[in-house]
Design a protein around this nucleic acid. Structure first.
Lengths: 385, 385
DNA sequence: ATGAAAGCGCTAACAC
DNA sequence: GTGTTAGCGCTTTCAT
């Protein structure tokens, strides 16, 4: 493979001129220009400045260029300047692939992009990825998003590691005995999770304190005078779902209230599920005056049912959600919800992962962040009797 | 850096045994096991099977291993089998970084993850990325998602190319004279766009035919007997927005209807914008009986206003959206909308890009796909007078 | 049919 | 302080 110098030699012009012609960064005399273009043509050269070109241009060895760029060995001021000038003049950027091969790293973080089930939305994860990419970039890493099939999940992770595509993973949508976590721990592959798993496993994670969040929501409702408070929860068995339900039970117990069995209704996460669940809930023996929902999607459905039943959401029945979807504040009535500190979560999960990759686990590697209760009209009116 | 063979030699065991101990893939006698672990410890070796290990195990040269794996040179059946056995036994996967360095490619596709403005959602792009990653993987490529700052946009793209992080880009959210497109064309960097730009530029893109889509929606409303049809459109100057508005004008003109000036209201894309825009629209001199919206978000807001004004969406006023958000079918009434063929768009944009990277532009490199009208209760009732 | 060896672009030990 | 050189793990001529 020819280098810039070869082209310059063939055209019998300075390296710099060759670069300027090929990169179109500065005007060059037509004659020189043509010579360079011809030479490049004949050599089949496509502009690609390497450390060798910089060394030639600065009249130093490639090692010296490396020293200057990485600040790894003292270099005399004069040489340093010549090198930096050459770097600037040639627009040189070190080839990451070569650097990575040398260092046996990739500076890539894998993140599995789940197939979004129809009927659900991913607004939270959306923003999470953006913030994660931002945080990663501040460390010189990039995020590789790959697709995770429904079966043979771990195999995809193993593959990505064994071909050296990534240095580690961020995983989300964790389950209690998440096989990915088990396997990655076993293989010693660096990772950090958004979400908890089996309590007996020691691995780095960040998570939203759903229990605390729902507890706060219930306390808010109690403060409005509500005593009959129902909950629309997810089916048993999901970590975050169970934690949220615990928050509900916790708050009521603290308040000395024993919830009726039919105040707790389990449901899926789509809007129409929330609708039906609310219908069941409101036909309880002692219908609740307030409904805590484990997601905004469910809350939207519940509000729909409430209104359709001739009741006024926010007046006759208070409602709260979880996630604070962008549209939630624009609903009628605007929905009280719990906002997750996504930016912070993303930042922290990357911090944890970078530490793992560097083989120095942070002392605080299990981070729980409380969501913020955003009170809106769907719940802010004191209970009227 | 020590190799697996070094460890095996030091422990005085076969290479295979060393691998089995280190990878934990098969039980090994305790004594051997300990010897290997000690050797690895002393050499500070972390399991990493290379082509050299496979060659040693199969008693061939590394070249032969490469021949077999890439099917690039005929190899005798016996040798071939020995190599494949060794590959299987050692769980060997070629190191992508090395392969890429050699080939001067990265097999990475860059995709800029836009900062999602608060109050907006990205459900369409969500699924787009997923499908894009899937298509890319089928070609042996991966998607690198990076963040695109609001200023110095092109610089981010230039950087990624010049450090050899990616082989090309998929760009979305294109503008009329999109600077990224201009610059990438100028630099000869492979890319494909989701969205059109300046008609005078010749570059590969896929796009949704928004004009055709809205036209279909209007024709549907006309078929229900509507004659006073309003439109909630985006502010002037966005390519897709203008195309959608054209579809509206087009359909009405074809039907011989001249729209009143106050039937056309411009608005942003959040739910509450739609609400306010609908308010303005319905206070037109001759209020429309049907409203075409350029997005579901706007349509949701519009439905909210309609209902709050004591009218029944789908009965007194027909509404259609665009995007077919997952929640749209669960609204009351379920929202008629235009569904974009996201899977297909993603697949095609990757096809286009892969061709660009291979330097062979496809003959059909400007692809327009029509969205599908999903008719639901928000518009399916014939106009009553 | 197989192997030796050059080299992709870089870093870092080792010489001087 | 600077240059020479040996790899990182792979593909691919070019011999044999």
């Amino acid at each position: 493979m020819p280098s810039l110098r070869d082209v310059a030699n063939k055209a019998n012009v300075p390296i710099l001129s060759a670069y300027q012609v090929l990169s179109n960064t500065a005007p060059v005399e037509p004659q020189t220009r043509q010579a360079v273009i011809d030479a490049a043509e004949q050599l089949n050269y496509r502009l690609n400045v390497t450390i060798r070109d910089v060394a030639d241009q600065a009249h130093v060895s490639i090692a010296t260029v490396s020293y200057v760029l990485n600040n790894t060995v003292p270099v005399s001021a004069a040489t340093r300047e010549r090198v930096l000038d050459a770097v600037a003049a040639l627009g040189y950027r070190p080839n990451i692939t070569a650097r990575n091969l040398k260092a046996s790293e990739t500076r890539m973080i894998g993140y599995a992009w789940h197939d979004v089930p129809p009927g659900q939305m991913n607004t939270v994860l959306d923003r999470f990825i953006y913030c994660m990419a931002l945080a990663a970039e501040s460390y010189g890493y990039h995020v590789l998003t790959f697709t995770q099939p429904t079966e043979n999940v771990v195999q995809t992770y193993e593959e990505l590691i064994s071909i050296n595509r990534v240095d580690g993973f961020v995983i989300s949508n964790t389950g209690l005995n998440d096989e990915r976590i088990r396997r990655l721990m076993e293989m010693g592959v660096p990772f950090a999770a958004f979400g908890r798993a089996n309590d007996e496993w020691d691995f780095p994670y960040v998570d939203v304190d759903g229990r605390q969040g729902i507890k706060t929501a219930v306390e808010h409702l109690l403060a409005q005078g509500h005593r009959r408070i129902g909950v629309l929860a997810w089916p048993e068995g999901s970590l975050s779902g169970d934690a949220r339900l615990e928050g509900y039970l916790d708050a009521l117990e603290t308040a000395g209230i024993k919830p009726e069995p039919d105040w707790i209704v389990r449901t899926q996460n789509a809007v129409h599920d929330g609708w039906q669940a609310a219908q069941r809930l409101m036909s309880a023996r002692k219908p609740p005056t307030a409904v805590v929902c484990v997601s905004d999607m469910i809350a939207i459905g519940a509000m729909g049912y409430i209104e359709s039943a001739g009741l006024r959401a926010g007046v006759d029945v208070a409602i709260t959600g979880f996630d604070d979807l962008p549209l939630s504040e624009h609903l009628r009535p605007p929905l009280t919800s719990l906002r997750q500190p996504i930016e912070l979560l993303a930042r922290q999960v990357i911090d944890l992962l970078i530490a793992e990759i560097a083989q120095r686990r942070l002392p605080e590697h299990q981070i729980l962040l409380a969501p913020t209760l955003i009170v809106r009209a769907s719940s802010s009116q004191p209970l009227h009797c």
